[in-house]
Design a protein around this nucleic acid. Structure first.
Lengths: 242, 242
DNA sequence: CGGGGTATTGAGTTCGTTCAAACAAAGTGG
DNA sequence: CCACTTTGTTTGAACGAACTCAATACCCCG
């Protein structure tokens, strides 16, 4: 990708010029001055799948934009039962404003690249840029909508419908099938069977059986356990129980 | 309750003086001038249980503070299966900023009194009062935390644990048992068995059986189907599966 | 080729559901 | 005032979807 060199971009920190978050993420609310200030304290990094980003009941030191990969947010009961309560895809923002402690655990589900900045820096800039607070509210509302949507899936859908809903969620976020005339999709699953089970409130065996059933029915193909080809998206939607 | 007549309160609209939302709710962010402006367009009203406040896919015309009673937020699948995705207690704010359409349905679960204001008025004042946006973000984060907490309940808890978690939620919000040395609680259930089932992702029969079991085990007493006395809160907590 | 993590498949069980009936409280109207 | 509906709740018996436990298969990587 070539970086545009016109006069406007010259004010934008190099780090941010090609960043998706600058257009659709929280950084889009910032003028060049603020962006420079934030970029000074921010740092990009790549982490492997399985890296813990925010520990449950740990102090929160930083916020981050997800630039690529998938971050899973989990909660765990005292006896070890686990539930994934959210997935963050690029260019989502994550972190917990206005709270010293996090009630959830954030972990890289895949290899993830992040742009993170210290809590203090973001909160200072937030005071000066009301637009940033609005973006943050927007992100939070989006997360809330997603959480409530998933509550329906968890509380009222069958195992078969849960799996179909999950595959659609991934297809829409990884393969970006918002286009309704797109008939097919293909992607690598960002989650293991164990993660999928923890996301859907099922066991790994049930997840496996339902995937096998979708494959046997010709709705999907699975290659190497992780790569999924959705043969016909509308057939998958029909099984997701809208 | 007597209204204080000192010089400060004289600037506060009569409607707001005794209002809980002015201290803990979104209105707390407003100075007297802004409060007067908002109060001019706002109106109090009481509605009966079952009244629809926001229809799914309907345009949103107003926001509201819940002053008393309980509002349930529901989502419905195309075949009629329903899930309650949130409960709003006083002095919660509800309504959906930045979106013309609501994806959820809001209905009074009990008799509810509301202080509602038109969408446009709130959004205008929000531009002028950055503190209000912060409060709104705070309310949204609170809702998000509650939703994620409930996702764990829906996805990973047994029917018995779901019922215990539900009773604790109600006890904490209706009877305000935040005090940890409070050993007992009593309240009227704000939801029917049907609502409880829709909140917990269960059937009414399972809800009824689990309540009967808690009663048989001496953890709770039930009077007139609606009034619940929690004999020992810590025993209920032990059954909620933290 | 072997080994370790991950995924699939099978058999039996359990928890919550479904279907059905009885019960209770609160109207409604003759 | 009492039969009769209506609505909400409880209880029972049988069923089934998802779980548990156990064995087998797959895939990557050294």
């Amino acid at each position: 990708m070539t970086v545009r060199q016109d006069i406007h971009n010259s004010d934008i920190p190099v780090l941010c010029q090609a960043c998706e978050a600058r257009h659709h993420g929280v950084c889009g609310a910032l003028d060049p001055n603020k962006l420079v200030a934030l970029a000074k304290t921010s740092s990009r990094r790549q982490v492997d799948a399985g890296t813990e980003l925010i520990g449950d009941a740990e102090a929160i030191h930083s916020y981050a934009n997800v630039l690529s990969g998938v971050v899973k947010l989990t909660k765990t009961l005292s006896d070890g039962r686990q539930q994934i309560v959210g997935l963050q895809f690029a260019p989502d923002f994550f972190g917990r404003p206005f709270r010293a402690e996090s009630a959830i655990n954030a972990e890289a589900a895949t290899r993830v690249s992040l742009c993170s900045f210290p809590k203090a820096a973001l909160e200072r800039i937030m005071k000066e840029s009301p637009g940033l607070q609005g973006r943050l509210l927007g992100q939070t509302l989006k997360d809330l909508d997603a959480a409530r949507e998933w509550m329906v899936t968890l509380g009222r859908k069958t195992a078969a419908e849960k799996i179909a809903s999950f595959l659609l969620l991934i297809a829409r976020n990884i393969d970006r099938v918002s286009d309704p005339n797109m008939r097919t999709a293909a992607f690598d699953l960002p989650l293991t069977r164990n993660d999928i089970a923890d996301f859907l409130g099922l066991t790994i065996e049930t997840v496996s059986r339902q995937l096998t059933k979708l494959r046997a029915d010709g709705v999907i193909r699975i290659e190497n356990n992780r790569h999924v080809v959705v043969v016909d998206i509308s057939r998958l939607e029909a099984r997701a129980g809208s």
